[in-house]
Amino acid sequence: MPSRPGMWAIRGPLSRNQYWLFAALGLLAPLALWWLVSSSALVDKVFLPGPVDVFNRLVTWYMDDDLTSDIGISVYRVTAGFALSAIIALPLGLMIGTFRPVQAMLEPLTDFIRYMPAVAFIPLVMLWVGIEESSKISIIFIGTFFQMVLMMAEDVRRVPLAQIEAAQTMGATRGESVRLVIFQSAKPALLDTLRVTMGWAWTYLVVAELVAANSGLGYSILKAQRFLQTDKIFVGILLIGLIGLVMDQLFRLAHRKAFPWLHLRS
């Protein structure tokens, strides 16, 4: 009797239950290891607080130190900087990916700027934009915008030529080809680009909150460092990771809802 290949066969099958088992293992094992190491006498609590300490800190932060508004302001900064990037990057990416002169004019320039470190722009941003809310949003914008433009241009370039040419031989004008074919065809890839760059926007949060902030998750992490509150640093990092994960999942959900044809075959 032929036997079903085992899960350790190359690219072998994995049932749903087995999947969840391994996923849980992957999440719980580090947690257990963390708990084990921190509860042993090997390391000082200042270097490595245990899961319980971190949880307690989360509770006091929430009860006494207004965690909700820290999260709120950080989410606002990231979302605003990210949205600003997206609004400008989308039409630019569409133009770069569609018209060669625009590509020649903007792509090398963007490629150049994207290698400049966003952190190094902080003094300039303070000088030009000031130290208000807009400065934090600017840093997140600088960190995401240039990558986003290039990725979106690439998404647009990947639209199959045959789709565009078919429209042209049906009498489509240039504007109609862009609007009804190129943009529609690139939409799923563009949403994926937004999802990926949203993650990058979060990584710039701590940098952004270096600038004269007095609230926010990134700011709290930086302040906790000064007071050696290692457990608070842990809470901050884990929360940023968690919020990022939730946003990522929301983007994936939106992708499934908006583009059902891509998710038809299981």
């Binding site: 045959a162 040419e165 109609e176």
Partner: peptide, 29 residues
């Protein structure tokens, strides 16, 4: 002069009937 290509010319975001009627979305049509 309509053209039929070897592949990748259909619009995957449109259902079959919508693909067939695509030219109706164009000003020309």
């Amino acid at each position: 002069r309509a053209m039929v290509f070897q592949h990748y010319s259909l619009y995957p975001w449109l259902k079959v009937m919508e693909n067939i009627k695509f030219s109706r979305r164009l000003k020309h049509g």
